[in-house]
Amino acid sequence: MDRKTKILIVEDEMIIAANISLQLNELGYEVTGIVPRGEEALMHIKSELPDILLLDINLKGTLDGIETAREMQKTYDIPVIYLTANADEAHFNRARETHPYGFITKPFKKLDLQRAIELTITQIDLKVKNINGTDPNEEGLILSDCIFVRHLNSMVKVNIKDILYIEAERNYCRIFTKRKEYLLVLTLKEMDKKLPSKHFHRIHRSFIVNLSQIEEIATSHIVIGRKPIPISKSIKKELLQRLQTI
């Protein structure tokens, strides 16, 4: 069964936000949360990474929607769809600098929302396919102490010791460090084969963890970077044996 697309709603008009959430659930998407402020959105993303950000431009608070997107993009690469009741040229030009995947003008119909999200998912998949068409050696060069990953238009060095965990997303995976996350066009199975085994262990069908970054081992999960990651009883036993040897 395919994983549901996760969407975070950042909207300070709660009636509108609740209505959007209801529509998204009816369309088969998973709403990771509804938050009214940009600052809260940035905190939410740290603990529950969405696939798409539905972001109202005219947020109250310290950060408006466009400034929230800019702050988010310093660390994450999450597609943004803006919601706006004010589609004037000035707002559009400011918003365009953050390279959004779409705009939805209020008031909007369920079909407008559906089409914007479907187009965004299509663009994400196309982006992944385009990256897949590049030289595989350029996409993810895995060495004994670091990984070179494509980030925007260049190859970035990520030290093995700085990686917290790696999470599967469809046919690619996300590498999480304390400061940034990177998209890599490899399945988690392929990633598991290439990573230096002395540092990493696959503890779930969707997660590979850096053994040195484990902060807590609970009954049914471990904690890394304040994120709980599920683990089965059999793999937990295997993990404890691994930890005794490093």
Rank of each mutant, 00 (worst) to 15 (best):
M43W: 11
M43L: 14
M43P: 00
H44I: 01
H44N: 06
H44D: 03
I45V: 15
S47T: 11
S47H: 12
S47M: 11
E48W: 03
L49R: 14
L49S: 06
L49E: 10
I52N: 00
I52M: 06
I52Q: 00
L54Y: 08
L54H: 07
L54G: 02
L55G: 02
L55N: 01
N58F: 00
N58H: 11
N58S: 12
K60P: 02
T62H: 13
T62Q: 15
T62K: 15
L63Q: 03
D64S: 03
G65L: 09
I66G: 01
I66L: 02
T68S: 03
A69I: 05
A69C: 11
A69E: 03
R70T: 04
M72N: 08
Q73D: 11
Q73I: 06
K74W: 02
T75S: 14
D77T: 06
I78D: 04
P79V: 02
V80Y: 02
V80N: 00
V80K: 00
V80P: 01
I81D: 05
L83E: 01
T84R: 01
A85V: 00
A87T: 02
A87D: 14
D88A: 06
E89F: 12
A90C: 06
H91C: 03
F92D: 00
F92V: 02
F92K: 05
N93G: 02
N93S: 12
N93Y: 08
N93V: 04
R94Q: 13
E97Y: 04
E97R: 12
Y101A: 04
F103N: 03
F103Q: 01
I104E: 01
T105D: 03
K106P: 00
P107Y: 13
P107H: 12
F108W: 12
F108E: 01
K109I: 05
K110E: 08
K110R: 15
K110I: 06
L113C: 04
R115L: 15
I117N: 01
E118V: 06
L119E: 09
T120E: 05
T122Y: 13
I124F: 09
I124S: 03
L126D: 10
L126N: 13
L126E: 12
L126H: 11
K127F: 07
K127V: 01
K127T: 12
V128M: 12
K129G: 03
K129H: 11
K129I: 07
N130T: 09
I131R: 15
I131N: 04
T134F: 10
T134A: 09
T134M: 13
D135N: 14
N137K: 13
N137F: 13
N137S: 11
E138I: 11
E139K: 11
E139F: 08
